[in-house]
């Protein structure tokens, strides 16, 4: 069974997660402030600009983070992979009382 992860998928996921979190948080925050308190400052240029810049940074960082985490960058030469036989401890299954 091959793992389905690949760079194109990670790019789509990074974009979707960025829109979901940053867009979602901004819209919900703005709606609550407007509907419950009558505040409209959230829609001013500063909050919008901060959200946009943060979203751009986060989307790019998330994609690169996923690629690095999934070993898509680099050759792994920082790690030595030597074959070693070891016993891996396992939990004893619980006996029913």
């Amino acid at each position: 069974m091959e793992f389905s992860g690949n760079p194109a998928l990670y790019r789509r996921i990074a974009i979707a997660v960025t829109l979901y979190i940053n867009g979602g948080a901004f819209i919900i925050f703005a709606l609550i402030k407007y509907l419950l308190h009558g505040d409209t400052w959230v829609l001013g240029w500063k909050p919008v600009l901060v959200t946009l810049l943060f979203s751009l940074w986060f989307g790019r960082a998330m994609y690169r983070w996923m690629m690095r985490l999934d070993a898509q960058y680099g050759r792994g030469s920082g790690w030595v992979l030597e074959s070693v036989r070891v016993k891996l401890p396992e939990l004893r299954p619980r006996q029913p009382r």
Binding site: M1, S4, G5, V17, M66, L69
Partner: peptide, 24 residues
Amino acid sequence: AGYERSIQQHWMFFLITSPPVMVF
């Protein structure tokens, strides 16, 4: 098969959630 599928789903979960968890 279920074991391997679950391992791979968990790895995909880590890939997707690690950046937002660390940042947010």
